[in-house]
């Protein structure tokens, strides 16, 4: 469990980026937690606070009921527990060959070579990127680089995985692959916190959401509650997911994802009947 108690943060004393943030992450039924908000709302800054890269100006962060220990040893323990993947893949890939980069964090932990090889192979298989293992990084696509960046953190087997804008810059195929990847990780018990501007993506993948605006949490709750408030989303410069719009504007049932909508035989029959009648 990660708990934030009245957290404030600012790079300068006069200008706070995060204001009085209190939340509990990892409550039962919350495997994928979404952090949504417009540009500059403080999502990335909150992530950096969670992994101890930035230190709150005031307030506390408790991880498993213990405050973060900001000494080197404490931070290393924290980062083994909470892994973070940043938005720009190029800035977090240091080696020129995929498998060397994935092994980087494990070498830093000074694990035995056999264990490193085993974990790297496992992650390559899990993310379905075995074919990329010996490829030079500079010839990978944006989506492939994102997967490599995630693999480089997954090898740590951290309890929590923070993903900052995992779909930014991805084409539809890359986005679909990212969705499948996250679903796969969740299915094997990985706890994930992610931030994104892609509301449809967030709606489809997340269980519980925090809406951040100008450094404040303005709403939190399960996805059907947070995305139901169209006016609040608009004020926060966000848009409602299309499935929620279909439900609110056309009176269709609220589907959890697009597959559920297109698999609804009853809806199809009703629509066909209505169209035939219209003719």
């Amino acid at each position: 469990m990660i708990e934030l108690q009245h957290l404030n943060f600012g790079y300068e004393p006069q200008r706070t980026i995060l204001q009085d943030i209190s939340l509990k992450l990892g409550q039962p039924g919350q495997n994928v937690i979404g952090l949504i908000g417009p540009n500059g709302s403080g999502k990335s800054t909150l992530f950096l606070n969670l992994v101890g890269i930035l230190r709150p100006t005031s307030g506390n962060i408790l991880v498993d009921d213990q405050p973060i220990d900001y000494r080197k040893k404490g931070l290393n323990a924290l980062r083994k527990k909470i892994g973070i993947v940043f938005q720009n893949s190029d800035q977090q890939i240091f080696y020129s060959i995929v498998k060397d980069d994935i092994a980087f964090a494990l070498h830093n932990l000074k694990l035995p070579q056999a264990e490193i090889d085993r974990r790297v192979d496992q992650v390559l298989t899990e993310l379905d990127i075995q074919a990329l293992a010996n490829r030079p990084i500079q010839y990978l696509s944006g989506g492939q680089k994102k997967r490599v960046a995630i693999a480089g953190i997954l090898v740590l087997r951290s309890e929590w995985l923070l993903l900052d804008e995992p779909t930014s810059g991805l084409d539809p195929d890359g986005r679909a692959r990212m969705l499948a990847l996250i679903k796969g990780l969740v299915a094997r018990g990985q706890k994930i916190i992610l931030s994104s501007h892609d509301m449809d993506f967030m709606y489809e993948i997340g269980d519980y959401f925090y809406l951040l605006n100008a450094g404040h949490i303005v709403k939190e709750g399960p996805k059907d509650q947070v995305f139901a408030d169209a006016a609040l989303l608009k004020r926060s410069q966000l848009e409602q997911p299309w499935l929620v719009q279909l439900s609110q504007r056309l009176g269709l049932p609220l589907y959890q994802n697009s597959e559920a909508l297109f698999a609804d035989q009853q809806l199809q029959q009703t629509l066909r009947a209505a169209l035939a009648k219209g003719e």
Binding site: F94, F104, L109, G152
Partner: peptide
């Protein structure tokens, strides 16, 4: 940003060279 990423990967001041 690279320093942040190095922190996240528990960099200890040395790059492993294969």
């Amino acid at each position: 940003q690279m320093v942040y990423a190095l922190d996240a990967k528990l960099y200890q001041g040395e790059f492993y060279v294969k």
